[in-house]
Amino acid sequence: MSDVSLESNSSLWKDAVHRLARNRAAVISVFVLALIIAACVILPTFHGIIRNPDLQDLPNKNMGPSFSYWFGTDHLGRDILSRVLSGGRISIAVGLITTLVSVTIGVCWGALSGYAGGKTDAVMMRIVDILYALPFLIVVILLGKTLEPLTSQLTKGVVGWFSPPGSLSASINKTTAWVEPITTLVPLFIAIGALSWLTVSRIVRAQVQSIAKQEFVEAARSLGLGHFRILFRHILPNTLGPIIVYTTLTIPGVMLLEATLSFLGLGVKPPYSSWGILIDEGANRMLSNPWLLFFPTLFFASTLFALNFLGDGLRDALDPKSAKD
């Protein structure tokens, strides 16, 4: 059984991609994801295709979907289509970056803890216990305060990098509008990334513990393979299923957490928006203007559905044994 994963990597990946391509749900998911990401990244960049997401038109507020406003307008008369798309850019960035950070930390921590066992395990898991119980909210408030000056420096730096020397202030404004929403999120990436890996680590640890005692691991050990190699080449691949699933479960969590934290000053700053904030604003108005909730939720949910079915497909594709099914 272990010899399967000892085969050359290239054929393993080729097989995986091949298997993935045969999974209809996964293929559809890839298309949906590509479409949403492309729309969110490209459309808001070029003015003229869609409206300016921050432009207010108070007399035309709370309008239902129509030909001129496909998704309707919000409580300040802004175009919801543009806001959903430009907010998606931020939410996708938040979801991917923070999840990547937290899952990486969590997988490494949990795997080491579970594999090492004994005292190391105890120490590592007690640290997790402490972090679990630490009042996250206080940490967030303090991080926001501490990192606030840093982010404005960062924005200036990045804008300066991208704009040619001596350029007009107008172009600086345009670049700022692109860069600022993302750079202001750096404290958020740090806060969420640093504190949301705990459950992943416990899940991975439990999986690793159960697999580490199986025959093929003993076999690998008796072959004299190094711990590192055993852990990352033989044990971890067998825990990939729960890791992938938990990763796809973390994404919606952090996207919504971003909205909560933005009310504490750590997330996106108005007038910029995100799916989480749009859903939150829509939730309060769902009885009078349901489309305020419907369209952001539609995009949010489609993305997550696609990510989940893609994750499931990926799991199947990477499972070397499923080929024989």
């Binding site: 504490l264 000053g265 007038p271």
Partner: peptide
């Protein structure tokens, strides 16, 4: 309300204002 003011000042005076959410204590 804050977003509306932000937009009004940008439109009429061409000045940018940031909006900073904060917890009550801060």
């Amino acid at each position: 309300g804050a977003e509306a003011l932000q937009a009004m000042w940008l439109k009429h005076l061409n000045i940018r204002i940031n909006i900073q959410n904060m917890d009550w204590g801060s």
